[in-house]
Design a protein around this nucleic acid. Structure first.
Lengths: 270, 270
DNA sequence: CTTGACCCTCCCCCCGGGGGAGACCGCAGG
DNA sequence: CCTGCGGTCTCCCCCGGGGGGAGGGTCAAG
């Protein structure tokens, strides 16, 4: 029974691959007790197997090698605990993310039509009286701005006693993306002209020709509807003649399930 | 409003990074509609944004690019569904694995002593009468072999009416690892000599000097105890003089929690 | 014409090793 | 002493999905 193990035997003992052991040597994470200076052969002692075992267990938990090094170097169980808790945090995040992805993919499988078949049509939107409020929004705050804006509109229009003449809509004159925020306009179609009040102004919107389609489902999956419309417009030789509108056909109060929400998207065209 | 978008604007529209878009082009997954042959500039159409969006969503679900390609290429929703279900399987596996790792790391955090401080001692084990049965086991079957073997021993010894004189133990004369199986010997210490019956033989085991330690916890975490022992023996100038023994100090029937199981490990030394 | 914002290709990098080529090394048997 | 043969060495490329940056061309507006 020799007291030094070549890498192959040590590999079997510790159930770490030879490649992994050489890698750990290179990183200085688990250097062999002896390296023959002539042949370069690595030789390990039995007592190194514990460290190897610890590495194997931690790697089995997906702890990064850098953390493994620190964990094994830290005498203080305080520090080790902190590192482990940090890793627990990482695992929990991944778990949560995987759960969300799983739920999402279930939905994708459920409604098999992976890409929704949007039907694009052209129509005339008649002129109408509207109440409009303008707000500045970023991608992060847009949801809040929309609901606040509609509340403000409802209040102003209600006080003025002007009846509504259709579902509320939104006009997006500027592109809003990750890093640029922009103005949005929220509007209520009205049965009669509205004078305006505070931030809310009344306006008469002229008739326009639009290309439109309807998106059924949660609002944050509305992207493809936009792309389909802009693509359709381009391919059919039209030209975009103004900012797009979103018309919220369903009232979230009446239709609580986001999967049944209907949003009409319109692009004015020439 | 031009009908062709350079890569930067397309990137913002689709929320895919420029690097990613170039990568997808290279893979033929999303080739720009036009590439200027002189400048090499990539230009995309609006209608390509839908495909880009689909890619972004699928990548957000960690679907490999190869699968994304097939998913988008497959006209048949049957095939797409199969691919999605396959990916769901992958996600479920990862979820399960993460759950197990999380549970494990909770245990590691709980008992802070990340590496158990094994105390190694030397003692004389007196000669004793034992009943022994030999079995062949691989790493996969060893658990079953052990419990079956002990049942066989118990039956034989019980029929012979010889009282037991200590906790049962195991002798491991051969190294058993992933790909090699080997023999194990299961033994009951007895208060009197035993004649043997069937596969079970009686034996008188001579006294030996052993280095020993006790492992507290689940049996499959016993590895470090072995490594500590072999390392200790080597470092203290002793030599291993025979196959190691495991003595099962706790009865799993009485102590159901694996965390409280006690296993003594002995190595005969010279 | 200049400037600044875009865009190009090419190369290296991340992580944790796996696979393999081509060349030594060590130990056993004849 | 030679010959195998299996173990081991270094070196290099590979995986996925891009990110970071160098060095240089291009586009559009003032």
């Amino acid at each position: 029974m020799q007291n030094l193990l070549p890498i192959g035997r040590f590999s079997k003992m510790t159930r770490l691959s030879v490649k992994a052991l050489r890698h750990y040597d290179e990183l200085g994470l688990l250097a062999p007790a002896v390296v023959d200076p002539f042949s370069g052969y690595r030789y390990y002692t039995y007592s190194q197997a514990n460290r190897a075992e610890a590495i194997r267990i931690l790697r089995g938990l997906d702890v990064p090698l850098e953390d493994v090094r620190e964990l094994l170097a830290s005498e203080d169980p305080e520090i080790a605990g902190k590192l482990l808790r940090m890793h627990r945090g990482r695992l929990e995040e991944r778990l949560e993310r995987d759960r969300r992805m799983l739920a999402f993919i279930e939905r994708l499988i459920e409604r098999k039509e992976g890409v929704m078949p949007y039907e694009v049509q052209v129509k005339e939107v008649p002129a109408q009286d509207v109440a409009i409020v303008r707000r500045r929004a970023s991608l992060a705050t847009i949801g809040k701005e929309i609901s606040e804006g509609f509340a403000e509109l409802g209040e102003a229009v209600g006080r003025a006693g002007v009846p509504m003449a259709g579902p509320p809509f939104l006009v997006m004159p500027e592109v809003i993306d990750e890093e640029t925020d922009g103005d949005i306009e929220l509007a209520f179609p009205l049965a009669a002209p509205f004078a305006g009040a505070g931030e809310v102004r009344g306006e008469h919107v002229p008739a326009t020709t639009v290309a439109w389609t309807v998106h059924r489902g949660p609002y944050d999956e509305v992207g493809p509807a936009y792309h389909t419309l802009t693509g359709w417009i381009q391919e059919h030789g039209h030209e975009i003649a103004g900012p797009p509108r979103e018309i919220y056909l369903t009232d979230p109060g009446e239709t609580p399930d986001p999967a049944d929400h209907l949003t009409e998207i319109q692009f004015p065209i020439r």
